[in-house]
């Protein structure tokens, strides 16, 4: 078990390195660079810039160098823990990404907790009371949950919260805390705002997870070991929770790793609609402006989180399932 974790941790830097190459190549892939889009933007707003200035900027940003040198410079700064400079904002990327990343992770974790807190019990109930009226109600709700685009859900919930509860629900902070430094009051204020976007982001996942949990558990409930457990004289409640629920959870645990990046990228439209200061809109802007070091850094963080998430779910799965823990032992 320990060997398994150490092995995975040793592979981690190599994976990140590999992803950094792919990410860099991807953000460089569109034709042109930051300056071409910068010039185009200036032109569309009526002003212009002479070729000499463009050349000067090009040299300043290192855009005149070949790709591998640019990559090397990026890597050099990365190895010092510096994500480079945003070409557009002319500020360090670390600063730009920092708080947004914290808020994004907080939001993702909240949505995740809401999803599991609701989906697992609902799935268990649906499976153990298959074809009961509440099972049918949950099934209908799940279909609605999966089918509703989350930005629309966001609009509806915002409208409801505003017109019936009188809550201002855009953003993650009240106006007075937006620029404030972190403090206990700011955290409380965040908690007051975060639940609505977390629900919006969690609904589709909850609906899917409920269905998967229901289906997994229905499969497990028909297995002979359940009959064996019942034949021992265990109460139905104990039978269900000790055996089939435990086994039905295993495949779900192995998907936790995919869940985090999915929430990050899935939140873009919701973040725009709800005016959330998270990382989605920043990435979109960086990509359209070809602000390559910013976009690359964000994507690389995504990759890193995906790898770490997968590692966490692998460890959890190994803890839960001895068949995986003892593989090859």
């Amino acid at each position: 078990m320990l060997r398994f974790i150490v092995q995975r941790l040793l592979i981690l830097p190599f994976l990140v390195l590999l992803f950094s190459v792919i990410v860099f190549w991807l953000v460089q892939a569109p034709p042109g660079d930051f300056l071409t889009s910068y010039v185009a933007n200036l032109a569309s707003s009526g002003s212009s810039i002479d070729a000499e200035q463009v050349e000067a900027l090009k040299r300043q940003f290192g855009l005149d160098q070949p790709g591998y040198i640019q990559y090397w410079r990026w890597m050099e700064s990365l190895s010092k823990g510096d994500l480079g400079l945003s070409l557009e904002y002319q500020r360090p990327n670390t600063e730009l990404i920092g708080e947004r990343l914290v808020l994004t992770i907080a939001l993702a974790l909240f949505a995740f907790v809401i999803t599991w807190l609701f989906a697992i019990p609902a799935g268990i109930y649906s499976a153990t009371h298959q074809n009961s009226w509440l099972d049918y109600v949950l099934t209908v709700l799940n279909y609605i949950g999966v089918a509703t685009p989350n930005f629309m859900l966001a609009l509806i919930l915002m409208w409801l919260a505003f017109s019936y509860l009188g809550l201002s629900v855009t953003g993650l902070f009240s106006p007075e805390y937006i620029q404030a430094p972190w403090s206990w009051e700011r955290v409380v204020d965040l908690m007051k705002h975060i639940w609505l976007p977390a629900i919006v982001l969690g609904v589709a996942g909850t609906a899917r997870l409920t269905r998967v949990m229901r289906a997994n558990l229905l499969d497990e409930l028909n297995k002979p070991y359940v009959v064996t457990a019942r034949a021992k004289g265990l109460s139905e409640w104990k039978v269900v929770f000790k055996y089939p629920v435990r086994l039905a959870l295993n495949p779900l645990v192995s998907t936790i790793g995919w869940y985090l990046p999915q929430l990050f990228s899935g939140s873009l439209i919701v973040a725009t609609v709800m005016n959330l200061p998270n990382i989605g809109p920043l990435l979109l802007r960086a990509l359209t402006q070809q602000d390559m070091y910013l976009a690359g850094s964000i994507l690389l963080i995504y990759c890193f989180l995906t790898i770490v998430g997968t590692l966490i779910s692998d460890i959890l799965l190994a803890l839960l399932d001895p068949r995986i823990r003892m593989e090859g032992a």
């Binding site: 002979p224 064996t228 034949a231 021992k232």
Partner: peptide, 24 residues
């Protein structure tokens, strides 16, 4: 009935592989 099951009447099931939980 639960006191009888397992204590007075016990079951030897058909497939021993599937009749044990694999994670216990």
């Amino acid at each position: 009935m639960r006191d009888i099951r397992g204590a007075e009447i016990a079951l030897i099931p058909q497939e021993p592989m599937a009749s044990f939980s694999p994670v216990h």
